[in-house]
């Protein structure tokens, strides 16, 4: 601490705590709340632990051998991936289109932005209750409208449609956030570059592709990462609308880890699912950053 002390101009006589002491409250808590538990979850995955008795027995890789090949886990893993594929591309594409629309209008932009942002402010657990009512068989809004057109009914009790139903809700919820991100990106497009492109005779498509899209790079990467992360940890609407059913058809990793680990108190098994979820989130984030991050960030500064 003294080496720090001498580096900074200190007119006072006597010992003062170094500035890094101000980190202590936050970092003590980070270790207690996050770093510690992550290490504990690794340990728990190697034990057969009974939380009611507090008794633990070392079982090595047994929990992994039990959980990883199980149908429950595989279904949840596939469902989580499918949920991500159903929500992320649609959210990003639709949000970009809406943001371009809002950005282009001369008046009413603030109003539209608020309309599309409203679901972000609304409590998802409560809105999922409303959505369950919309998906109610036959008399609900979904069956009465698109259900008639597409010939689909009773999504929440169908093994093929339950996961798409919770994906619809996830997309609806995340769009507001993505739109605001894209709008921020669009307002950062330098107007003189856009004007120069116009004077050079670039059409709307060329202006989008060569000016707007590259400038949106950082916003797109950021939105992609956040939306993917939200998708990989989806829980609320699954718990409210389907409880993972019917027959596990909408069980996601988050839901499974809660059901196994907390409700059924299978601490070892739940810890294995936790580690898989963490690995998935870390892996996908790293892949996204290395695949698109660099390129788009560079493009953004062009």
């Amino acid at each position: 601490m003294n080496s720090l002390h001498t580096r900074l101009p200190r007119p006072h006589i006597g010992l003062r705590p170094p500035p890094s002491a101000l980190l202590i409250p936050a970092y003590t808590l980070l270790f207690l709340l996050i770093v510690g538990p992550v290490l504990v979850v690794v340990t728990l995955s190697l034990f057969d632990y009974d939380p009611l008795l507090g008794a633990a027995g070392f079982v090595g890789m047994d929990n992994f051998a039990r959980v990883l090949p199980s149908d429950d886990f595989r279904t949840a893993l596939v469902n989580t991936a499918v949920y991500m594929l159903l929500t992320v591309p649609v959210t990003l594409t639709a949000s970009l289109l809406v943001a371009l629309g809002i950005h282009s209008v001369r008046f009413g932009a603030a109003l539209w932005r608020s309309v599309y942002f409203l679901p972000v402010a609304a409590t998802l657990a409560a809105m999922a209750v409303a959505w369950r009512w919309l998906f109610y068989a036959d008399s609900g809004l979904i069956d009465a409208t698109i259900g008639q057109v597409l010939g689909l009914r009773d999504w929440l009790h169908s093994t093929t449609l339950a996961l798409p139903a919770v994906s619809v809700v996830g997309t609806w919820e995340n769009m507001g956030f993505a739109i605001v991100m894209f709008l921020a990106g669009l307002s950062a497009v330098p107007p003189h570059v856009m004007e120069a492109a116009r004077l050079d005779g670039a059409g709307p498509w060329n202006r989008f592709w060569h000016v707007t899209w590259p400038a949106l790079g950082p916003a797109t990467v950021f939105t992609l990462i956040i939306c993917t992360r939200n998708a990989l940890k989806v829980f609320d609407q699954v718990q409210v609308m389907t409880k993972g059913g019917p027959i596990n058809s909408s069980t996601t990793l988050s839901y499974l880890l809660w059901e196994r680990g907390i409700r059924f108190l299978d601490i070892g098994g739940g810890s294995v699912i936790t580690l898989m979820l963490l690995a998935l989130i870390l892996g996908v984030t790293v892949i996204q950053l290395s695949a698109v991050g660099r390129r788009w960030e560079r493009a953004g500064t062009r």
Partner: peptide
């Protein structure tokens, strides 16, 4: 700037990536 500045920054960024679900079971226990 102090000794451990880089480590502190990385710890923060690492914690940023960990979602609430990951700490659920140990914290519950």
């Amino acid at each position: 700037r102090f000794r451990g500045h880089g480590v502190a920054t990385w710890v923060m960024l690492g914690c940023l990536i960990v979602p609430g679900q990951v700490i659920a079971i140990p914290t519950y226990v």
